[in-house]
Computed example of a mutant assay.
Amino acid sequence: MKTADAIVIGGGIAGISAAAELAGDMSVLVLEAESQLGYHATGRSAAIFIRNYGNETLRALNTESAPFLQQPDGVSEQSLLSPRGEMLVATDEELDALDAYKTGSTGLEKLTPAQAVELVPILRKDAIAGAVIEWDAQDIDVDRMLAGYVRLLKVRGGKVEANAPVTGLHRSSGLWTVQAGGQCYQAPIVINAAGAWAEGIARMAKATDLRLLPMRRSAALLPAPLGYEIRNWPLFASATEKWYAKPEAGKLMVSPADEDPVDPHDAWVDDMVLAEGLHRFEQAVFTPVTRVETSWAGLRTFSNDRTPVVGYDPKAEGFYWLAGQGGYGVQTAPALARLTAALICNSNLGLQPDIVRALDPGRFNP
């Protein structure tokens, strides 16, 4: 029987960053079902930090994460961010959505259609009725971020067990016993950072049913449009998130921005969904999609209010939720990791009380 003060279920960026923060004050063990860390959502992220992405709670978490991403002490010797920018373009029918996005946003600059086309020359100028750009949106080096957190976790004495899918979970005499990968582990605290599998982990623990919903998000890598240097283009997207595109290693990554509810699994692309999304993208540009070099999909898991679920379960003692991050998991990981360490170790929360309440699992069972 292997023991720890806290067991983290899930070795994506959420679980690893929280484990690294906790390891400064207690013994921590991470259980990862796959043979490698960050295999699912973390490894398939769009890898961009957008301050105005998400609802009010998420924007507060983005703001809280920004200083760490810029100066990731203990994780990397240099910033995890690099310049990119994010531009939203709207047709006449999308102007209301663009106005809604601007509400509560900061640091946005309004662009004319001509200015938008100057930034991304393949866009159809006559299709643009409005546009805005967030110049401060930045690429995130997700691989370096995850590797740095893993290194910090191990330096602090934390341990990782890969190939350890959880098959059993019960509590007795103040301890959780976890069966995983043919082994047994015990700890007074279990942190559910299992991403798309978080609901299944909660059912094993007889914790609250929060009805988290995994949704598939697809992407394809296309050759760069002939005759264009795309390296400095911003991420550009439709205001209603029908598609988005981003330069990626000399090529153009395009996503149909799909959100199809699915069961937890090792996600793959639905060819029809991808084709429809690429068609929507083609309506906004004048360069046709001639070839898909590769494609992939990942799962983004949402709560009913599209806000992460972070905190102790209201009915399962010692069961802590760190789930429902949706498409915001990488950029909110530093803030949520520090909040997790603060809540578990009873230290300064660092966030406003209303934000902490908005994340609490108990909000669904008042």
Rank of each mutant, 00 (worst) to 15 (best):
P113F: 08
R151C: 12
A46N: 09
H170E: 14
L351C: 04
S35T: 13
L81T: 04
L210N: 09
N365V: 15
G148L: 01
K246N: 08
Q183D: 15
H279A: 14
A116E: 01
Q183T: 12
F319Q: 03
K125Y: 13
M253H: 04
M253G: 12
G157Y: 05
P121F: 04
A14C: 11
I355E: 00
P361C: 10
D360C: 09
V285T: 09
A341V: 00
T106D: 13
Y312W: 11
E161T: 10
R171N: 06
T57E: 07
L88W: 11
L98Q: 01
T3F: 06
D96L: 12
D136H: 03
G298K: 02
A245E: 02
D99E: 14
A23R: 03
S35M: 10
G362H: 06
K315W: 10
V356Y: 06
L221C: 07
R306C: 08
A323Q: 05
P314H: 08
I50G: 14
A60I: 07
V155N: 12
P165G: 08
F49H: 13
Y328G: 07
I140S: 05
T112I: 09
F286E: 09
L210A: 14
Q36C: 11
E134D: 11
S172K: 12
Y39R: 15
L108H: 00
S35Q: 10
E94W: 00
E64H: 14
K2H: 15
V150S: 05
A18C: 04
T294E: 13
P121S: 03
D270G: 08
N346H: 14
D73A: 14
G104V: 00
T307V: 09
A284V: 05
V30A: 07
P247Y: 03
